[in-house]
Every structure is written in structure tokens, then in C-alpha cells.
């Protein structure tokens, strides 16, 4: 009736409900941040280089998701699957870098309970990382079906979700790492 395929419509509604979750969390963070200029002194301990590299990785993985969609449009399930796996590899890289980053921070004594800045830092980035993980699992499922050249419309749907995960990070990176 709307002309939008039902699967894609559902993805959009999922994203709408996700946006308000991150919106609430980041809104709360921003309000606190404005009230606490001294958090600057905490934020300088974040690793901008690791965060920047991860931004680059996620953006590239979104590119391969777009290419996968193109391949799926051509009906080329095999390359779509390959490109989706590449996207998932981007997600894995992101999480590995994150693991190293967090290990370094936690061993330097910046834990989730240290103070409110770090509480927000770990909560927001952690919630985002969960979304990356969930996205990777779905990517693998969709890649498996796409490789058999079936359900190719799913390639686009997971792509939309993956872009969203990417965009959330684009908000998190400056708010948590760059704002000093």
C-alpha cells in the first residue's frame, strides 16, 4: 500500500525506536556535560587515534554494505555475500580495536564506576558495541542466504541497519573523544 517493501518498512521502524534510545542516552550525557565543564580533564584520557581509526573502519564497512546492495540488485548473490562478509570483518576489526582500547583504559584505572564521565563513556560505547555485534550476526545470516541467491532483498535491509550503527558512532566519536 505504501509501496515500500514490508521488510524495509520494518527496518525503518526498528531504527526509529533505536534512535530514541540513543537519543535519550546522548541527550542525558550532553546535559550533564554542559553542567560539568571539568569532565574535560577526564575526556583527554580517551584515545582519539583508536577512535579515529575505528571511525574509518566503520565508514569503510558501510561502503562495502552499499556495494553488497548493488551486487544484490544485479542479482549477483555470490559477490553480495562476499561483500557482506567484508562488512562483518569491518565490524570485527572495530570490536578488536575497542577491546584493546578498553583494556588500556581499565588498567589505567578508568573504569565504569570511576566517575560519571566514564560511566557514560562505557555505557554509550558499550550499547553501541552490542549493536555492532548484533549487526555482525545478522550480516553472517544474510550472507549465508545471499550466497545461495535467495532472499536478496535482505541485503539492502541489513545494509540500512548497518548504516545506522555507523551513524550512531559518528555521534559518539566527537561527543566522547573529541570534545575536550
Amino acid at each position: 500500500m505504501t509501496g515500500i517493501p514490508t521488510g524495509r518498512l520494518a527496518v525503518w521502524w526498528v531504527l526509529a525506536s533505536e534512535i530514541v534510545i540513543f537519543g535519550g542516552l546522548l541527550g542525558a550525557y550532553i546535559m550533564h556535560r554542559i553542567g560539568h565543564p571539568e569532565w574535560e580533564g577526564q575526556a583527554i584520557h580517551t584515545n582519539v587515534w583508536a577512535g579515529g581509526f575505528n571511525t574509518f573502519v566503520l565508514l569503510s564497512s558501510s561502503l562495502s554494505a552499499v556495494l553488497a546492495h548493488q551486487a544484490a540488485e544485479r542479482g549477483d548473490g555470490k559477490s553480495a555475500a562476499r561483500l557482506l562478509l567484508l562488512t562483518a570483518a569491518g565490524g570485527a576489526t572495530f570490536l578488536i580495536v575497542k577491546a584493546f582500547e578498553w583494556t588500556a583504559e581499565i588498567t589505567s584505572g578508568f573504569t565504569i564506576g570511576s566517575n560519571l564521565f566514564w560511566s557514560f563513556y562505557y555505557t554509550a560505547a558499550g550499547l553501541h558495541a552490542l549493536h555492532v555485534l548484533a549487526g555482525m550476526v545478522i550480516l553472517l545470516f544474510v550472507a549465508a542466504t545471499a550466497a545461495k541467491n535467495i532472499e536478496l532483498h535482505r541485503v539492502e535491509n541489513i545494509g540500512i541497519y548497518w548504516h545506522f550503527v555507523d551513524i550512531v558512532w559518528i555521534f559518539l566519536f566527537p561527543l566522547l573523544y573529541i570534545a575536550k
Binding site: W13, F22, G24, L25, A28, S119
Partner: peptide, 24 residues
């Protein structure tokens, strides 16, 4: 759908206050 999101975020923060010792 439009209103529950911030409370989901708030619930995660409350959960962390309860069990991991944050002070949101």
C-alpha cells in the same frame, strides 16, 4: 515506540547504578 527509548536508556543506567556501582 517514540517515547520508550529514553526510558530504555534510563533503565540501563538504573541497572548499572544497582549492580555495577555507577552513580548516574
Amino acid at each position: 515506540m517514540g517515547s520508550v527509548g529514553p526510558l530504555v536508556a534510563g533503565a540501563v543506567m538504573l541497572l548499572f547504578d544497582q549492580v555495577v556501582g555507577t552513580g548516574f
